[in-house]
């Protein structure tokens, strides 16, 4: 069954007078991977940053329209609560440099001042690290700084950090663009396992990646949603000429 989890309705966003996103509408389904793809500067990152209200931190950010999570508009909710329900992983791995691997995983709790019992902490750390396949690699160095890890490991640590908060949705903003092919493959595999328990929205400039891992795909071009649908259908029989041109590499 496909449950609607997140609905984007007539959404506009931009910076100052410059409009980036124009009238975006799409629906994200529970336990699926939704990819947002498109050429550079098409508004992919802006789109994903609107979903957890990070967009409004940018100077001069503007937005209108609705994004419904479980039927409730996130723009009428407290942004802090929105961000706890919708986790995010960034383009470059950004573990907290002053924290150990252990503390990085539960940093969402530490930084928010949520007190946990030692056993609870251990459980969350072990579960989250196991989910991202990092447990075996770091179980002997949990109290070393997170920044000692390799780029791919750091990125998985950041995914674990987001997972530890048990979010409804995880947003990934080109999570593999600064990683080597091996780490990329590992993260792609990981995402397919993670969708059993959570919903994933991933931004990618790599059409092959979108084809490999996503269930649904949105194609953005110059701030407009050109096409949205099941990945299989879009990659085999796109309705729009632009989509076909993009997928066949006529522009990028």
């Amino acid at each position: 069954m496909e449950n609607e989890l997140l609905i984007v309705q007539n959404f506009y966003a931009g910076f100052g007078r410059c409009n980036i996103l124009k009238d975006i509408n799409f629906t994200v389904y529970q336990n699926k991977i939704t990819a947002i793809m498109g050429p550079s500067g098409c508004g992919k990152t802006t789109m994903i940053r609107c979903i957890n209200r990070m967009h409004e931190f940018s100077p001069g950010a503007t937005y209108s329209g609705k994004i419904l999570l479980h039927g409730e508009d996130i723009y009428s909710m407290n942004p802090i609560l929105v961000r706890r329900k919708i986790g995010m992983v960034f383009q470059r791995p950004n573990p907290f440099p002053t924290m150990s691997i252990y503390d990085n995983v539960i940093s969402g709790f530490i930084l928010n001042g949520i007190k946990l019992q030692k056993q609870e902490k251990d459980k969350i750390v072990i579960n989250s690290l196991k989910k991202v396949g990092l447990w075996e690699e770091v179980k002997d160095s949990l109290h070393r700084r997170g920044t000692f890890l390799s780029g791919g490991q750091q990125q998985r640590l950041c995914i674990a950090r987001a997972l530890a908060m048990n979010p409804d949705v995880i947003l990934l903003d080109e999570p593999t663009s600064s990683l080597d092919p091996k780490s990329t493959l590992m993260i792609e595999k990981l995402l397919e396992e993670l969708k059993q328990t959570t919903t994933i929205i991933i931004v990618t400039h790599n059409t092959a990646q979108a084809a490999r891992i996503s269930d649904y795909v949105a194609f953005l071009y110059l701030g407009e949603l050109i096409e949205y649908g099941a990945t299989k259908k879009i990659f085999t029989a796109p309705e729009h000429k632009k989509t076909e041109e993009y997928l066949t590499g006529k522009f990028s």
């Binding site: 957890n52 990070m54 931190f57 802090i80 609560l81 929105v82 961000r83 706890r84 986790g87 995010m88 960034f90 470059r92 950004n94 573990p95 907290f96 440099p97 940093s107 969402g108 930084l111 928010n112 950041c158 950090r161 987001a162 908060m165």
Partner: peptide
């Protein structure tokens, strides 16, 4: 800047 974003994205005030 990514450092603060990491914190904000976890819902930290």
């Amino acid at each position: 800047l990514t450092l603060r974003e990491a914190s904000f994205a976890l819902g930290v005030p």
